[in-house]
Write a protein that binds this DNA or RNA. Structure first.
Lengths: 198, 198
DNA sequence: GTCTATAACACGATAGAC
DNA sequence: GTCTATCGTGTTATAGAC
């Protein structure tokens, strides 16, 4: 008997995901404000009523996607942190994972980079106060203590290390770079590491 | 008699500027889509009719501001290009000017960095195809030919050089960095140049 | 849980007096 | 050139049948 409850819950979760996927696609393609709930209804193949049954409104869709994406990025960085040791290795694999995600899930990457929290979700904490940012900072702090990274302001070091790669991701998403970013990994890494290496 | 015509033209130009200033302020503060013409009317102290007399609509305000800002940045880079020689000197002063503009005209900088052409002005060329971007590329190409910069992909070099500083500008605009960026110029420059220096 | 129909509203844009 | 008043449209969100 619990089966029927479980099946219903599962199907409910499925429609939830369908709505979120449609929203993510449209938000990244034409932007939050250029997407109406009618668009999301059409894209998801469901109805307005159904959307409002699962979410309180359009804003919650954006919020949900935002936190989804953020925790995806976070777990990815955590994995790298746990799997490797030393700032050099860890930073390398953070950038590698950044490039891989750009290729395999460009919409997720686009959402992370271009989503304007302040505009769409006023009152949310800025992304730089988020967990991923904190992990990066501690990787760098440890690397500095170990003498791998030149002593300098931590914010400076993180900007120097990731600024270039992030810029490349943007150029790739905009279509300026046409080859997969993974092809440029070693060259990008060389530039990034030189900027902070001791 | 020409005086009266000139005076009228001047006053007309003045109200035009008042409207543009109000629009820039509101667009950067809360975003294009969160700003209504009523807001611009209130902020500028004029009327809806007056705004429509000077501009064809809201979108033209954004477009006008965009090209204004772009040509400001362009002339700034051109100045640096003409005033200095060698990739090293030129790049240093481009970054210096970037930081100075961030401090003296944060709204201009914010408009350049965060304005979403694709969303607000669909059909506009992306900023990376713009003149400022082209000048940077030629500075780098000349620097590579002169042996100042390691041989590498030009796009890669520009991302490495400016990615870090641009990231710092963003952090400054978001309030993560509280001191004027000019204080960090030498450290930021050190990181940026190391990433590409021969 | 899912649907359709519709309410309530704000927006960009226009018309026309002065 | 500047203004006020207003139109038409598209939006988010709700009500209520099934």
């Amino acid at each position: 008997m619990g089966d029927r409850v479980a099946a219903r819950a599962e199907s409910s979760e499925l429609t939830r995901q369908r709505i979120l996927e449609a929203a993510r696609h449209l938000f990244t393609e034409r932007g939050y404000f250029n997407t109406s709930l009618q668009d999301i209804r059409r894209e998801s193949g469901l109805s307005i009523g159904s959307i409002y049954h699962h979410f309180t409104g359009k804003e919650e869709l954006a919020r949900e996607l935002f936190y989804d994406t953020l925790s995806f990025v976070e777990s990815d960085i955590r994995r790298v942190y746990a799997q490797y040791s030393g700032a050099r290795e860890r930073c390398y694999h953070v950038i590698e994972s950044l490039f891989e995600t750009t290729e395999s899930m460009p919409e997720v990457m686009e959402y992370v980079l271009y989503f304007k929290h302040r505009e769409v979700l006023p009152g949310e904490k800025p992304i730089c106060a988020s967990q991923p940012f904190e992990i990066i900072k501690s990787i760098i702090a440890e690397g500095m203590a170990a003498g791998e990274i030149r002593p300098m302001d931590e914010v400076m070091a993180s900007a120097a290390l990731l600024g270039g790669p992030i810029r490349l991701v943007q150029l790739r998403l905009e279509g300026v770079i046409v080859e997969p970013l993974t092809q440029h990994l070693s060259e990008a890494w060389e530039c990034a590491w030189r900027s902070v290496a001791a």
